[in-house]
Structures are given as structure tokens and as C-alpha cells.
């Protein structure tokens, strides 16, 4: 083959192989991944989302929580993802087999949430924080999600789910603030985010 043929072949390969390398091979290598079933306990890792958590996930996507929160604990030498306690191990491609859209995130205006279910298991905290982040984290820049809550008149007994609001934040006499179905689903999703299980090789 002469000189020119080699150049053409090189051009073809560089160009076509980029497509193969970045789109096709990752797909080949990773789309076959499945959740792992533990033979002894019968548990599946990562556990599939419950119906409610899945609905909560769609709220998470819709409200754009993922523009401020990542869901990936990185490996590598030059970052402190593990040292900050955002996870017990580096995230694995297999952690994401149930996820679409992927919500890996590209910005950490807020902390990583890959394991928020393990770090913060309290419903009450999550509701207060979503209703008004200033109540739990003074000075936060996370937006309040009051539109995910309902202000309603207390009929008979106060609802057990009502937020315990104090001082200026508390609603008028005879009213209570309760999470909407969306807020409850969202919190169920957040609590399901726990990737502290280990995969068997």
C-alpha cells in the first residue's frame, strides 16, 4: 500500500473509532450489567426502586435537584469525595443499572446525594429541609420547595405528618402544613439512596 492509502486509513480509523470508543463500546461493555442477587440472603443489589421512590425520582428530575447535587462518589487521587464521608466506597457502574435519566450531575452547589439515605434517614428532617432549608441549615442557598406542601385547615385531630414549625414559620392558628404526595414520594426516593452495599466480584 502506498503512503496515501495509509493516511486515508488512519483518518478513517481515528474518526470512526471515536464514535466506537465513546458511544458503542461503553454501551457494549456496560448495558449488559444487571443487578446482583446475593445467593445467601436473596437480596438484590442495587435494590430496585419502590413505586413511590420511582415517582419521587421523577419529581427530583422535574425540579432539577440534580443541577446542584451530584450522585457519584469519585475515585482518584486528587479529590476528597470519600474523605468527606459522601460514601463508603467509590461508585460503580452497576450502582446505576436502574437509573434513567442518569442524574449523575455536574455541579456541587450542594453536597453529593449518592448515599443521602444512609447519611440522613429522618423523614422529619427532610420535610423541614425541603419546606425551608433555613430551618435546618441556616444560610443554605438551596431553594425552599414550599410548593410541594399543602397548607390546610385542621379538621378534627392534627395530622401526624404535619410539619413541626415554630415561631415565624408556623402557620396561622387552626392551620397545618402537610407534605403533598409529591413531597412524600421525593423523600421516599432520597431515603432509598443508599449505596453502602458491596458487590461480589
Amino acid at each position: 500500500m502506498n503512503y496515501a492509502t495509509w493516511i486515508f486509513l488512519g483518518v478513517f480509523l481515528t474518526f470512526a473509532a471515536a464514535w466506537l470508543g465513546l458511544v458503542f463500546f461503553p454501551h457494549e461493555q456496560l448495558s449488559g450489567l444487571r443487578a446482583q442477587k446475593d445467593a445467601d440472603s436473596g437480596q438484590v443489589f442495587p435494590p430496585p426502586y419502590s413505586g413511590e421512590a420511582l415517582y419521587g425520582r421523577s419529581v427530583y428530575v422535574r425540579e432539577g435537584c440534580w443541577y446542584c447535587h451530584t450522585q457519584q462518589v469519585r475515585g482518584g487521587d486528587y479529590n476528597a469525595d470519600l474523605a468527606r464521608g459522601w460514601g463508603a466506597r467509590r461508585s460503580d457502574p452497576r450502582d446505576y443499572v436502574h437509573d434513567a435519566p442518569h442524574v449523575l450531575g455536574s455541579m456541587r452547589t450542594g453536597p453529593d446525594l449518592a448515599n443521602i439515605g444512609a447519611r440522613q434517614p429522618s423523614d422529619k428532617w427532610h420535610y423541614l429541609h425541603l419546606y425551608d432549608p433555613q430551618l435546618t441549615s441556616k444560610g443554605s442557598v438551596m431553594p425552599p420547595y414550599r410548593f410541594l406542601f399543602e397548607l390546610r385547615k385542621i379538621v378534627g385531630q392534627p395530622s401526624p405528618e404535619a410539619l413541626e414549625l415554630e415561631g415565624a414559620a408556623s402557620p396561622a392558628e387552626g392551620y397545618e402544613v402537610v407534605p403533598s404526595r409529591e413531597a412524600r414520594a421525593l423523600v421516599a426516593y432520597l431515603k432509598s439512596l443508599d449505596r453502602s452495599y458491596e458487590f461480589k466480584e
Binding site: 483518518v11 481515528t14 471515536a18 465513546l22 457519584q72 475515585g75 482518584g76 457502574p93 446505576y96
Partner: peptide
């Protein structure tokens, strides 16, 4: 035309993707 195509995965450095993809990028 040749090199730009390769660079996409530099948005996932040290993330949960196979390391060789990132290195290629």
C-alpha cells in the same frame, strides 16, 4: 475533525465509568 470527537468523556473524569474511556478522552 480528527481529535475533537475523542474528547467527550473528559466530563466524567474519575466518575463511575471505565477508566480507559476517560483516558482516551
Amino acid at each position: 475533525a480528527l481529535f475533537y470527537n475523542w474528547a467527550g468523556a473528559h466530563h466524567l473524569v474519575s466518575g463511575p465509568v471505565p477508566a480507559w474511556i476517560v483516558t482516551a478522552s
